[in-house]
Design a protein around this nucleic acid. Structure first.
Length: 205
DNA sequence: GTCTGGATGAGCT
DNA sequence: GCTCATCCAGACC
C-alpha cells in the first residue's frame, strides 16, 4: 500500500484509535536495517482513570514521564529486560496510549530472525516485536512518529475486530475486566494465539 | 497440546 | 527489597 498515515486520529478517542491502528504498517529503520509489520494486536490504556495504566492517578515519575505528552509520540518502557512500545493519544492532560502487542512481519524478516535468534514467533508479543523492529527504550523513548526511524504506513484492513480483556494485569482490580484489547480475528501473530487461522490471516484486504 | 518457574532490570519506597 | 502491561524452555498429557 502507499503513503504515510495521517496520525491526527490519535488525538480523539483512544478506544477508536486503537481499533484504527489494526492493520497499519509499522516501518522502522534502525541499526542499518529496515523492518516492518502490520499491527494485529493492541491494548488501550485510558490514563488517569484506568488502574492498569502507568498514568493512573496522574502521578508523574521518571518511569512514566514520557506518557505525559501529546498524541503521535511513543512511550517505551522496560519490563523484565524486555521493551514495550506504546503510541500516545490525546495530550498531556489526558495521558492515554495504545500498547502495540502484536504485528505480522512484512519487510526485513531475515533481520528480525537475526535479532530474535529464532525463526518462529517473531513478533507475537510486545517484548518480541520491539526486539524484532529494533526499538529500544534507551534510544527511542519519547520520540515522535513519522520520521526517518519510525513510520506508520497505510497497510491492511481487518475483516473482523475482536475485543477481549487485556493480558497480564491480574492485580488491577476492576480494570482486569475492561475489554480494551483489540485483535484481528483469525490472525496468528497475536499473543497466546490458539484456534484456527482465518482465510488471508483475517485481513479483509 | 497445556502448565510452570526462572531470568531479568528499572524504578519506587 | 519489592513490583511488574514478558519470554522461553522444560515437564508433562
Amino acid at each position: 500500500m502507499s503513503g504515510e498515515v495521517d496520525i491526527s486520529f490519535l488525538q480523539h478517542d483512544t478506544l477508536e484509535a486503537a481499533k484504527n491502528l489494526l492493520g497499519k504498517e509499522i516501518v522502522t529503520e534502525t541499526d542499518g536495517g529496515l523492518t516492518s509489520g502490520f499491527i494485529t494486536e493492541v491494548e488501550a490504556y485510558l490514563g488517569l482513570e484506568d488502574r492498569a495504566a502507568h498514568t493512573f492517578g496522574g502521578k508523574v515519575t521518571k518511569k512514566n514521564e514520557k506518557m505525559f505528552n501529546s498524541f503521535g509520540h511513543i512511550y517505551v518502557y522496560t519490563m523484565h529486560g524486555h521493551n514495550c512500545m506504546n503510541f500516545l493519544t490525546k495530550d498531556k492532560e489526558h495521558p492515554e496510549g495504545i500498547l502495540i502487542r502484536g504485528i505480522e512481519p512484512n519487510a526485513g524478516k531475515d533481520i528480525m530472525i537475526q535479532r530474535r535468534g529464532r525463526e518462529k514467533n517473531l513478533t507475537d508479543g510486545p517484548g518480541k516485536l520491539t526486539k524484532a523492529l529494533g526499538i529500544r527504550r534507551d534510544l527511542h523513548n519519547g520520540m515522535e512518529l513519522n520520521n526517518d526511524i519510525l513510520k506508520l504506513m497505510e497497510g491492511k484492513v481487518p475483516a473482523i475486530i475482536e475485543a477481549t480483556k487485556r493480558i497480564g494485569i491480574d492485580t488491577k482490580e476492576e480494570a482486569v475486566d475492561f475489554p480494551y484489547r483489540f485483535i484481528v480475528k483469525g490472525n496468528p501473530h497475536v499473543s497466546r494465539f490458539k484456534g484456527k487461522i482465518d482465510e488471508n490471516n483475517g485481513w479483509k484486504y
